[in-house]
Computed example of a mutant assay.
Amino acid sequence: MNPIIDGYYADPEIRRYGDDYWLFATTSCARGQQVHFDAFHSRDLRQWVKVSHVLDISDFSWVHRALWAPSQFEWHGRYFVVFACNDIQSDQEQGGLGLAVADRPEGPYHDYLGHPLIGNFINGAQPIDPHVYVENDRVYLYYGGWQHCNLAQFNDDLTGFVPMADGSLFREITPAGYVEAPCMIHKDGTYYFMWSEGVWSAAGYQVVYAKAHALEGPFVAQAVILKGDERVAEAPGHHCVVQDPQSGEWQIIYHRRPVGETDSTKRILCMDRLRFDQDGNILPVVMS
Rank of each mutant, 00 (worst) to 15 (best):
P130K: 07
G114P: 11
D137L: 01
H110M: 10
A125G: 12
F121Q: 01
V139P: 15
L117V: 03
D129W: 05
H110T: 15
N123T: 02
G124K: 02
D137K: 12
G124I: 00
V134I: 14
G119M: 02
H131N: 14
I118V: 15
N123D: 08
G114F: 03
N123E: 08
Q126Y: 00
N136K: 15
N136L: 04
D137F: 02
P127R: 00
P116E: 06
Y133E: 11
N123H: 09
D137M: 01
H131A: 11
I122N: 07
E135R: 15
I122P: 09
H131E: 11
P130C: 12
L113D: 06
H131R: 10
N123S: 09
I118R: 04
L117R: 10
V132D: 12
F121K: 01
D129V: 01
V139I: 14
P130A: 09
V134W: 06
D129N: 10
E135M: 08
V132I: 14
P130W: 09
I128F: 02
N123L: 01
D137Q: 13
I128A: 04
P130Q: 07
D129R: 01
P127E: 03
V134S: 13
L113P: 12
I118D: 05
V134D: 09
G124C: 05
P127N: 07
I118T: 03
G114M: 03
P130F: 12
I122D: 03
Y112W: 11
Q126N: 12
Y112F: 11
Y112C: 07
I128D: 00
V132Y: 06
N120R: 15
Q126P: 08
D111F: 04
D137A: 11
H110N: 09
P130Y: 11
G124R: 03
Y133H: 15
V134L: 10
L117K: 10
L117W: 06
Q126F: 00
V139W: 07
G119R: 04
R138D: 14
Q126G: 15
G124N: 08
V134Q: 15
A125N: 10
P130D: 13
D137H: 13
Y112S: 08
Y112A: 12
H110D: 10
Y133G: 13
D129A: 11
N123A: 04
D111A: 04
I118L: 06
G114H: 06
L117Y: 10
N123M: 03
L117M: 09
I122T: 09
D129H: 06
E135L: 06
R138K: 14
P116V: 01
D129P: 14
P130G: 13
R138C: 07
V139Y: 14
Y112P: 07
A125Q: 08
G119V: 00
I122K: 07
I122R: 09
V139Q: 13
I128S: 03
Y133D: 12
D137S: 10
Y112L: 01
I128R: 02
V139F: 12
Q126V: 02
I118K: 05
A125E: 05
P116S: 08
D111G: 13
V139M: 11
E135S: 14
Q126C: 09
R138F: 09
D129I: 00
L117N: 14
E135H: 14
H110S: 12
I118Q: 02
F121E: 02
G119E: 05
E135C: 06
V134P: 10
H115D: 05
I128G: 05
V139G: 13
V132C: 09
V139C: 15
